[in-house]
Simulated assay, not measured.
Amino acid sequence: MIDDALLNAAVKEAVQQVSVWVPFLSGLGGAAILGMVAFLLARQNHSYTLDREEKAADKRQLHAQKLEEDKRHKELIYISTELIIILEQYAEDCEWVNEPNRQAERAPKSSYPVPLNYETVTGDWRSLPPDHSELFRARQDEFSLLRLKAIHLSRQLRRACGLPSSRLNASSWSAQPVMMRVLLRERKQRRCKPEGDVLTL
Rank of each mutant, 00 (worst) to 15 (best):
D3M: 01
A5T: 08
A5I: 11
L7H: 12
A10D: 00
K12F: 04
K12R: 04
E13S: 09
Q16K: 05
V20N: 14
F24L: 11
G27W: 04
L34F: 09
V37R: 06
L41T: 05
T49V: 04
T49R: 12
D51I: 07
K55H: 02
K59P: 00
Q65M: 10
Q65T: 04
Q65V: 03
K71S: 04
H73W: 09
I77S: 06
L83M: 10
I85F: 07
L87A: 08
Q89A: 13
Q89N: 13
E92N: 12
D93K: 05
W96S: 12
W96P: 01
V97T: 09
E99S: 09
E99R: 15
R102I: 10
Q103G: 13
A104M: 08
A107L: 15
S111M: 11
Y112H: 10
Y118H: 07
E119P: 00
T120D: 06
G123R: 00
D124A: 03
W125M: 05
P129D: 04
H132E: 03
H132Y: 02
R137E: 06
A138L: 14
R139C: 05
D141L: 13
S144E: 01
L146S: 10
K149W: 11
K149I: 06
A150K: 14
H152V: 01
L153S: 04
R155V: 05
Q156L: 13
L157Q: 14
L163Q: 05
L163R: 08
S165G: 02
L168V: 08
A170Y: 09
W173A: 10
W173C: 02
S174A: 13
P177G: 02
V178N: 06
V182R: 11
V182E: 14
L184D: 14
R185G: 10
R185F: 15
R185N: 14
R187Y: 12
R191E: 14
C192A: 15
K193Q: 15
K193S: 15
D197P: 07
T200K: 13
L201T: 12
